[in-house]
């Protein structure tokens, strides 16, 4: 599965929201997860993400793919915080390493924070096609060149995948060892894939840049039009403004003494 193939068409009320709303809600959840360092509140955010995933009818297989990232991330975070952050009561001593209550608290909070962030990503990639994502970015008045670069990056993934497969197959047929052998053999095999891939990609980029130029992408025209402009409904506006208001509220609260105590 690649980024290009994460989108799964389904119908649900969440899916019928406009693209900017479907972008704004997960971004608000992710930002909130960054601002909040309290485990119970982070757990509540994870719960909110789970509800959103259900509302967006994201298939379990996609959620499992993203959850697999956490399998690597959570042990690293847990070990890092418990070993290197010392605060509060010492719960356990293993040689020179003291595991403290403060370190454990931070580890749990960060684990939950990253769980919320990682599981919110399929709400963007799997709930709307890439062109909607780019349309949402354009609607949010992100500079056109940045939106185009994002679209172009997403577009090059399937092509690169195909090129890599083709070159690997071609090199295997020439007897190049790609899957077995020691590090030296594998590195040599990797070079035999990377070098032709670079040659092919550079040649293709040259043609692509000519085509893009001829389509007027680089033309300085402030009047650039929208063919399919996202049209948020009243519900969309309420959800978007609600997300922004909630974020601003959390941010403002985090600046107060009570907020610092409760959120961190």
């Amino acid at each position: 599965m690649t980024i290009a193939s994460f989108y799964v068409p389904r119908d649900s009320r969440y899916r019928r929201l406009s693209a900017p709303t479907k972008l704004m809600i997960p971004l608000a959840v992710m930002t909130a997860a960054f601002l909040i360092g309290q485990p119970m509140l982070n757990l509540a955010l994870v719960g909110l993400v789970a509800v959103l995933l259900w509302l967006a009818a994201i298939p379990r297989s996609v959620v499992r793919t993203f959850a697999s990232v956490l399998r690597t991330l959570i042990p690293v975070i847990t070990i890092g915080w418990t070993i290197f952050f010392r605060s509060g009561e010492v719960l356990l001593s293993i040689g020179p390493v003291d595991i403290t209550s403060g370190g454990l608290y931070r580890a749990i909070a960060t684990d939950l924070r990253f769980t919320a962030i990682v599981l919110a990503v399929p709400l963007i990639l799997a709930a709307m096609p890439q062109q909607d994502l780019v349309a949402a970015l354009r609607w949010l008045h992100l500079p056109y060149v940045i939106c185009f670069i994002i679209a172009l990056s997403l577009r090059t993934i399937p092509t690169l995948e195909r090129d890599v497969t083709l070159i690997r197959d071609a090199q295997r047929s020439r007897g190049v060892e790609l899957d077995r052998g020691g590090i030296r053999v594998r590195l040599r095999g990797l070079a035999s894939v990377v070098l032709p891939l670079m040659t092919v990609s550079i040649g293709r980029l040259e043609v692509m840049s000519r085509v893009i130029e001829s389509r007027g992408v680089t033309a300085r025209r402030p009047c650039r039009t929208f063919y399919r402009r996202p049209r948020p409904s009243r519900l969309d506006w309420m959800l978007m403004l609600g997300s922004i208001a909630a974020l601003l509220g959390i941010f403002a609260f985090s600046l107060t003494a009570a907020g610092r105590q409760l959120l961190s």
Partner: peptide, 19 residues
């Protein structure tokens, strides 16, 4: 393949016209 940049066929046709 080197001349496609759109994520859908429609987008492919529309981009130059929008610009």
């Amino acid at each position: 393949e080197a001349q496609l940049y759109g994520l859908t066929v429609e987008e492919e046709l529309v981009l130059g016209l929008e610009n």
